[in-house]
């Protein structure tokens, strides 16, 4: 993998994590980061709809399933880094904070943000998913044979 695709993959991962984060949790974690830089808007937060597509039979041709709400914005922080956000829902502050993290992840403060915000969001997310998977596992059916007919 080239350096550029590695960087793109890392950015895709954090943008996805920020998009799915609970706004209140992101706000709380960002509060621990310290001073946030000033920024100028390149695109003010705007809520809209994204048409979600599925595939026929799960694997065939696409069809339109219905829309979901998404809020997007773009901003530039002092120093020049540009942050983008596309987050689920209609929370404008969520989009603003996600874009700020995206911008800061392109600066020397990246490791601080990764530790304080992203790693914790990821760990909490993994724990939630693990919790649901564990409950699902407990509802798995174990079949056992009662009487076989051939005797």
């Amino acid at each position: 993998m080239t350096i550029q695709t590695t960087e793109t993959e890392a950015r895709r991962a954090w943008m996805g994590l920020l998009a799915k984060a609970a706004p209140a949790r992101l706000d709380a974690l960002l509060g621990e980061v310290g001073d946030l830089p000033d920024f100028t808007w390149l695109r003010r937060p705007e809520a809209g709809g994204v048409m979600v597509r599925g595939r026929m039979g799960g694997t065939g041709q696409p069809f339109n399933l219905g829309e979901m709400t998404v809020t997007r914005c773009a901003l530039q922080i002092a120093g020049g880094a540009v942050g983008h956000a596309y987050v689920q829902g209609r929370d404008k502050r969520h989009a603003e904070q996600a874009a700020l993290v995206d911008a800061l992840m392109q600066t020397e403060r990246a490791s601080d943000l990764r530790r304080t915000v992203l790693d914790r969001l990821a760990a909490e997310r993994a724990a939630r998913a693990e919790g649901r998977a564990a409950k699902a596992a407990a509802t798995r059916v174990d079949f056992f044979t009662m009487v076989r007919g051939e005797d």
Partner: peptide, 22 residues
């Protein structure tokens, strides 16, 4: 819904990779 600007469309979702509750 009719008041929301359409931002775009998603890639088709991959239900094969679903985290299944059921």
């Amino acid at each position: 819904r009719t008041t929301l600007p359409r931002i775009g469309h998603s890639k088709p979702v991959d239900t094969g990779a679903m985290a299944c509750d059921r």
